[in-house]
Computed example of a mutant assay.
Amino acid sequence: MANPYSELFDAPGTKGFALAGLLARIPLPMMGIGIITMLSQLRGSYTLAGAVSATFVLAYALLSPQISRLVDRYGQSQVLPMATALSVSGVLLLLASTWWQAPDWTLFIGALLVGTMPSMSAMVRARWTEIYRGQPRLQTAYSLETVFDEVTFIAGPPLSVGLSVAIFPQAGPLVAAMLLPIGVFALLALRETEPMVAAQNGSTECSGSVIQLADIRLLALLMMAMGLIVGTVDIVSVAFAEQLEKPAAASLILSAYAVGSCLSGLLFGSLKLQVPLHRMLLLGGLATAMTTVPLLLVGSISTLAIAVLVAGVFFAPTMIVAMSLVERLVPEHQLTEGMTWLLAALNVGVALGAAVAGQVIDDGSALAGFFVALCAGMLVLLVAFLGHIRLR
């Protein structure tokens, strides 16, 4: 039986841009935690560190879709170098501000500039779409990219923290700033796989942002709700492990979530399902909501790891379905922007989930934070149901 993933790389240039894209997306999960680790060590304030990191996350959520919109209009090779240069300059400003003890406001300016980092996940997905549009292999490609996203979000944060702790506080953001241009320019070197830019005419020039489409807003809300679950799992897992005086076990729990998502994503991508996308969206939303309930019932590290593993199983397939729907819903010349809105919403959800669950934990117990995940799961189900009705 042929391996559907090996068949993806039959097209010329696919191995190159897949590897370049994997390298270029690592800086995103490295940056937020890297800023917190750096500033908590050098400025001694988690409040300041969290505020600067939140500024980066918010700036990225707002600016990355606009950068992707420019990419759709002018092409990756025209836009990505400038966006990358701005983002790297923001990191350098952050590093310089900490090195020379500049005022705190310079840190926020640096974080805003770092937020111009392009959404490399969307750039690579756009290349796969250009090659396999309308073919079953496209779902497999989206599955592979979702797994790559998971891998970078597993490896990025500990890599960044480890560098900042073991070498010097600025090391994590500095390495991220080095990896970003290397990956971006490796991707841009593969010009033959770059998506074609649509010919500019009155309709394309005057077309508004895809976020104006109600269906895209609905899918973005779905991704934000899913991000709330991820952010909650992250912060509650750490707090619960500390409550049981086994802080090292937090990494085991978080790895279980990622492993469940990666394995299910690979399996989903290998299947040739005939179920309509709107129905799969509803099923994914229902399963995601149901898997938040057992999180409230755990009593040990092992049971939490199992519950988190099961919860992670439905993350990747639901995200793949959402991306596939974007490919169907938006005009071809706005595909990158459409995907970026969903990825940005996911990142906002993760940040919000961690913040809200952290507040709940401070006011109660560690496991009380999972009520945030339960509410987010209900929101996922509601949005998936509305999507099922609208998109059928």
Rank of each mutant, 00 (worst) to 15 (best):
Arg69Pro: 00
Gly34Ile: 01
Thr14Met: 14
Ile26Phe: 12
Leu48Tyr: 10
Tyr60Met: 11
Gly13Ser: 12
Ala11Ser: 12
Gly32Ala: 11
Val79Asp: 07
Ser87Gln: 12
Met38His: 08
Ala24Cys: 03
Met30Glu: 11
Val88Ile: 03
Ser87Ala: 15
Ala85Thr: 11
Ala61Glu: 06
Pro12Ala: 15
Tyr5Asn: 08
Ser68Pro: 03
Pro4Gly: 04
Leu39Asp: 02
Gln78Met: 14
Leu19Ala: 11
Arg25Glu: 08
Ile67Pro: 00
Leu23Cys: 05
Ala18Thr: 13
Gly21Phe: 02
Val88Thr: 03
Pro4Ile: 06
Thr14Ala: 15
Ser53Met: 14
Pro12Lys: 15
Ser68Ala: 08
Ser53Trp: 08
Asn3Tyr: 04
Ile36Gln: 01
Tyr74Phe: 13
Val52Trp: 06
Arg25Ser: 13
Leu39Thr: 02
Ala20Val: 08
Gly75Met: 06
Ile33Pro: 05
Leu58Asp: 09
Arg25Gln: 12
Arg73Ser: 09
Leu48Met: 12
Arg69Ala: 07
Ser53Gln: 14
Arg73Gly: 05
Ile26Glu: 04
Pro4Gln: 03
Thr55Trp: 09
Gly50Arg: 02
Met38Leu: 13
Leu39Pro: 08
Pro27Ser: 06
Pro65Thr: 10
Pro65Phe: 00
Ser45Arg: 10
Ala83Leu: 11
Tyr46Asp: 12
Thr37Leu: 03
Phe9Tyr: 12
Ser87Trp: 12
Leu63His: 04
Pro81Trp: 03
Pro12Thr: 13
Phe9His: 09
Ser87Phe: 13
Gln76Arg: 01
Asp72Phe: 02
Ser68Cys: 02
Leu22Ala: 14
Ser40Leu: 01
Arg69Asp: 03
Asn3Lys: 11
Met38Arg: 04
Met38Ser: 09
Leu28Val: 14
Ala54Gly: 15
Ser40Phe: 06
Lys15Trp: 14
Pro4Met: 02
Gln41Val: 08
Ser64Ala: 13
Asp10Gly: 14
Leu39Glu: 02
Leu48Arg: 07
Ser77Met: 06
Thr37Ser: 14
Thr37Ile: 09
Ile67Asn: 00
Gln41Ser: 14
Phe9Gly: 03
Met82Cys: 06
Ile35Glu: 00
Gly32Arg: 01
Thr84Ala: 09
Gln78Val: 15
Thr55Gln: 13
Gly32Val: 03
Ala11Asn: 10
Ile36Met: 06
Ala20Ser: 09
Arg69Lys: 01
Pro29Leu: 11
Gly50Asp: 01
Glu7Thr: 13
Thr47Pro: 02
Ala83Cys: 11
Phe9Glu: 10
Tyr60Arg: 06
Gln41Trp: 04
Ser53His: 07
Ser6Leu: 15
Phe56Ser: 05
Tyr5Trp: 08
Ala54Phe: 10
Arg69His: 00
Pro81Leu: 08
Thr47Phe: 08
Ile26Ala: 10
Ala59Glu: 07
Ala61Ile: 03
Lys15His: 12
Thr84Gln: 05
Gln78Pro: 11
Ser87Met: 14
Ala51Ser: 15
Val79Ser: 11
Gln66Tyr: 00
Thr84Phe: 02
Arg69Thr: 00
Gly32Thr: 05
Tyr60Gly: 08
Phe17Gln: 10
Leu8Gln: 10
Leu19His: 00
Ala51Arg: 09
Pro81Gly: 07
Ile33Trp: 00
Leu48Asp: 08
Val57Thr: 13
Ile67Thr: 04
Tyr5Glu: 09
Arg25Gly: 07
Arg25Ala: 10
Val57Asp: 08
Met30Ala: 09
